[in-house]
Amino acid sequence: MCRHQANIPDLTMWDQEIRQMASSHAIMASGVFMATVVPAVLVPGFSVYGTHLLWLYSVAGSVTVVNITLFWLLGVSPPTKKNTLNYKVSRLVRSCLYLLLSCLFFHTVVVLYGAPLLETALETFSLAVLLTSLTTLRCVCVLGPNVQAWIRVFSRHGAMSVWDTSLQMVVGCSIVGAWLGAFPIPLDWDRPWQVWPVSCSLGSVIGYLTGLVVAPAWIHWHRKQLTYKSK
């Protein structure tokens, strides 16, 4: 059931998996890049600051599509026990529900951090959607709609595969990026990227890209020390 039964890492298999991960991450990063470039060509007057929400949704959309396609093709998520249509539909519905809940959760957290409650609700919710697409969506793709597994992965020493580790790093980087992105807001520079939520969404996307680069590199570097407990 688990691909890494032994504690002694099988280096060739690892190399293959890391290569797989690196290439898929490259595709994801290029997806973000395309989501910025393509609308700039197609939509007149498009700019990351000026029409920020458009950019934000285009990035969120492209990340969603690329993630779902790639992980479906790779087949990383744990194989389902039952193969009935009913079960599949229920999984799909649960995934959507989790994604929606995660949007609401992020929205609440951002409001708790001090975003205005009513005035910029649309901007805040858009940021929540972006964060969901960068973090929760990947969780759903890698682990399936299984809260127990999520808790396991995000507690200490909970990673059980290379993909779990990369998931931790990408999610962590995206959230830390959004967190750091809030810092320039109080500065009195009057720049267009200080407007809510530009700096935060830029920060989270930059963090996401960093995570995509760092995760395979870090795993490659530490592949000798990494050991995964089997279930």
Partner: peptide, 9 residues
Amino acid sequence: QVWYFLLNT
């Protein structure tokens, strides 16, 4: 703002 932010985190 810095303190509120830190406290929240």
